[in-house]
Each structure stands twice: as structure tokens, then as C-alpha cells.
Amino acid sequence: MDILQIENVTKRYSAHTALSDVSLAVPEGSIYGLLGPNGAGKSTLIRVVNRITLPDAGRVLFQGKPITDEDIYRIGYLPEERGLYKKMKVGEQAIFFARLKGLSRREAIARLKTWFIRFGIEDWWNRKVEDLSKGMAQKVQFITTVLHEPKLLIFDEPFSGFDPINANLLKQEILRLRDEGATVIFSTHNMASVEEICDHITLINKSRNILSGSTDEVRRRFGENIFEVVFEGATERLRDGLKPYVEVLDEAAVADSSLNQMRIRLNDGVSLRESIAAANEAVELRSFREVIPSMNDIFIKAVEGKL
């Protein structure tokens, strides 16, 4: 079941097109990554989903029905730029936002206490937001976004402004939210986080959806029949033995051992079984595994148009 469907959404501004005919579906209970270079249209898409921006064409469905204001009021939205009242104290501010999302004051305080302890920020309660660093404010904003336990969470660049330790903390929290049943959509250019936590991704470039799918599937799809062979024996023997089947990309000795390794690409029409058999004939194999490209590689390739 898809909790959110975006169908053929187009948004034009006077000078440029921010989104052209973008469609995607977010499965319920997944962590969905929106990737893309700066200015690709990720934030616009998020703002369209939130009904902050109205699309020129296309529609957004929430649980199968066109999304309404009431739906928006139930989701949790973390905007890219931090939206907190600077002069207000952290605690009061968090209670204010929680009450707007329908929590009672008492309930809000109880939940906030738990979250503040979890993030180790109990003693910020009476500090003004203007006295916090960007990362600190980010933590507070994250808490206010998730406090009312929404089914759908939308984070715009949640990792920006975080040090690695806090980014990791945030990742754990996002995973935990998913495990508790929430669906999380977030935009990022932090590829490491995508590989670690995203179940699905969509890559947006120059206002278009150029790639969608589950993370594993996408990476396999971009596998280019490249394999890494680790073996014992002479490199020449393996090279000769595999000659009819593969193109050798590079060779090296494995450090601190008598082993060698070689990266190969299967020629078109060659089966993997044949190649492995040939390699097995030639040398003593230790491992033979497919090299799956990192999201980072896919991202750069896709954006640079080398698909």
C-alpha cells in the first residue's frame, strides 16, 4: 500500500520549471530518499506535497485520496530552513508547536521530557532559541516535528548542520520511527545516509524524476557486470584463462598476503557460470563477488547523464 502518490506533478515559475511531470509512490512504512543536486526541485516537490506550493498540473494522493489540509495537519514536516521563534524559550516553543498539532499541554510536556532526555538536551528547556547553535536548533526542530507521532514524516535536508555523531543519532531515530510504523520521506545529498537507511529512492535532476526504485534494486540495476576476484596463483594464468569471457579492468596484489585480486567486466552474452568455471580452472579462487556501485557513484553518473 502506498501512503503517498505523486502523479505527474508540474510546477513552473516565471523564469524556470521546478518540476516537470514528476511521478512517484511512497510505500507505507518505508524510508524514502529524495536525492538530487542543489536546485533540482526536491524542496519544491516537498512544498507541493505540503500544499505550501500548489502545482500547475498533476496531483498528490494521500492514502489513495487527494491530499487535504486536514491530512497535512497530521503529518510532520521539517523544513530545510530552521523555522523556530528566535526569542522564545525552547520548552515553551516545543509545547506551542505540539499544541498546534493537537496535543494537550500535559501530553506535550510528558513526551517532550522523554525526547529531550533521549537527545541529551534536558537543560536547554529554558534557553532561548537564539542562544542555540544551528545543530542544536535542528535537534529541537526535529523533536517538534515528530512529537505528535505522525504517520507520515517529511524531512527536508535533515542532516545538514549536524556533526557525524549527531547525524548518526538522527539516523537511528529515523530508523526507530520507521520501525514504530511511520513512513519517512527525506531529501538529502548525503549519500552515505541513503545507503544506510533508505528503503526506496527517487533521484531528481533538472526538475525530472530520472530514477526511482528500492535501494537494492537500483544498485543492482546499475551493476555493470563488474566482479572482483580474489585468488591464489599467477595473475597471468587467470588473465589468460578468462580471456574469451571478460575484460580485465585492473589487477593488484592483496596487501599483507600472498593473494592477488582482479576486477573484471563480463563481456556481453557471457554467462556468469562460464566465467566462474574458467577462473576456477585457471587459479585457486578465494572469492568471486559482484561489485555493486555505491549510491554516490550512481548519483554522480545519473546527474552527469552517463546512464
Binding site: I52, I75, G83, L84, L100, K101
Partner: peptide, 16 residues
């Protein structure tokens, strides 16, 4: 101020 600090973006996800 609300508009500049983008508090508005958060607020309109809760209120008309």
C-alpha cells in the same frame, strides 16, 4: 519575522 525565519512553513503545516 515569521516569514523570514521560515516559522511560517512549520505553522502552515498545522494551521490555515
Amino acid at each position: 519575522e515569521e516569514k523570514g525565519s521560515r516559522v511560517l512553513d512549520v505553522l502552515v503545516s498545522s494551521v490555515k
